[in-house]
Design a protein around this nucleic acid. Structure first.
Lengths: 285, 285
DNA sequence: GCAAAAGCTTCCGATATACGGAATAGATGG
DNA sequence: CCATCTATTCCGTATATCGGAAGCTTTTGC
């Protein structure tokens, strides 16, 4: 197992077939396919062809999925889509230590205070995933970070904030894996990336025009565990004008304060945070 | 299906066992179990006992689930929880016709305008499910309706709004099924329920102190399809004082207007409108 | 610190379970 | 109406799944 993602399972050829051969894997493959075609839904034969499974097999699996509430059949159009039960499941998913629950009120407060949209990102393998977000009243919305959306770790400020505060070895692993993936999404130069990371680590926050969208900027701070490693990031996305030299320090300060509050709630036992103020700057009591 | 062939002597009626016998069913059962114990996570043997599966079986299924990103193993605590990929899946789930996407900006507008929390509910079987919500700035939050949460159809204003605008036969079916479930959650009297439904149908909105929480009230309007049947409900939850005789009609009026706007977008039958206006979204994942 | 208990993982043979070809029924469309 | 495509059912085959047993690791208790 070791390294935590899909680096190994590569033995079976086939572009996008049903991953393995267990029926559980096939069922999950169907769910993923349905997710990717949720606009229109997918018919049985579509699935059959896409996953290279025979119609009877797909039929049987779909029947189970429907019974279990993970899929729904639109009898009118004969199309299948994901079921709402799945939605309920996921409400609990990716919520280690109730991170999302803890952060929810903070996101609300931040979006109200800063008037921009606030994102909560966590690491998932070599990506960052948007766990939650809270829209601010400011009328221009960032395109990034629909809930559940993924970004390559290292792309975007929230990503960088997480990356800068990973374990040394993990960060190296991520850099190695992600550099090729980052072609054309901004950073392609390893040296530059490392410089950025060092800078973020130094400052305790990430803030640069990502280049993803002209005119848009972001600021992000990591949410640290008791060892000073990132478990998440708080990020603000807005138009560049709203993150000028005057306002930026203010925003950063507020973010850091809230991040520290989250850290404290994440570690209810902590006698003393081990590496607190040094990294996050002026730590409020 | 059904027909319990319980070859094993194990007759002990263990409350909540793994649903069926297919490995897909068992895998999903594990996911559900993890969802219900996401606070702490579950260990392999916990799952094994709860679902009446042998440890090797659970081990194998968990391994698959982890590989597929549907579960995560916390190596430190030896506990399993739901994986973030599941979270990403569900971002697409329960989103027929992109209902959630369509409603998102409207929820935001409503919560800003009305200053209270707005809920989007859809029907799922005999329940209503909270598809989305948008918090308003008003400091008292309703406990109801975490995203993904379920309520018995008929309990609460949003529920009622949906129920009042179902097909005749469907409504009867729901009433029949749900009446027993509603014991102790407010309405227990069939006559009263039917009266309420008729009233809601008449007025075009639902508004009563639900009795679920003293001092809290709600208003809800249905979102109708072209046939005048409910596909969803928009609901406002707040303290009773904020829904007095003066304000209520205003709120209802605004809700109805937005509901109508949604309905219009839901029926892009005009082949011209097929394109869902990729304003800022549509980004790659 | 050691022994005991509980938990996790691997192995492997028996068999239940899932598979897919073929045939049927239903839908679509010319 | 027939031709084509799709969904569903049936059933014999074989394969993937199961669980006992045993090795191994971690936790518990003394």
């Amino acid at each position: 197992m070791s390294a935590d993602t899909r680096s190994k399972g590569n033995e079976n050829a086939g572009a996008d077939e049903a991953g393995g051969k267990s029926s559980l894997q096939r069922g999950l493959a169907i769910l993923r396919l349905l997710a990717s075609s949720n606009e229109t839904g997918a018919r049985l034969t579509d699935i059959s062809r896409a996953l290279d499974l025979t119609p009877p097999t797909v039929h049987r699996l779909l029947k189970i999925l429907v019974e279990e509430g993970m899929a729904e059949a639109d009898k009118a159009t004969k199309r299948y889509r994901l079921g709402i039960d799945l939605f309920g499941l996921a409400a609990q998913a990716g919520n280690p230590n109730n991170l999302r629950d803890i952060c929810r009120p903070i996101l609300l407060r931040l979006s109200a205070t800063l008037r921009d949209t606030i994102f909560l990102l966590v690491r998932s393998g070599f990506d960052a995933v948007c766990l939650d977000r809270s829209e601010g009243p400011f009328p221009i919305r960032s395109f990034t970070g629909d809930i559940g959306g993924r970004v390559t770790l290292g792309v975007g400020q929230g990503s960088l904030a997480i990356m800068a505060f990973l374990h040394e070895e993990e960060r190296e692993e991520v850099i190695r894996f992600n550099l090729p993936r980052m072609q054309g999404v901004g950073i392609i130069d390893e040296v530059y990336l490392r410089t950025e990371i060092a800078r973020v680590r130094d400052l305790g926050y990430a803030s640069r025009s990502t280049g993803l969208l002209p005119g848009m900027s972001g600021v992000a701070v990591p949410v640290l565990d008791r060892d000073g490693h990132a478990v998440a990031a708080l990020s603000v996305g807005t138009i560049s004008e709203r993150l000028n030299e005057e306002r930026l320090p203010v925003v950063v300060d507020i973010l850091k304060r809230e991040s520290a509050a989250i850290s404290r709630q994440l570690n209810p036992f902590d006698p003393v945070l081990r590496r607190p103020a040094a990294i996050l700057g002026g730590g409020p009591a």
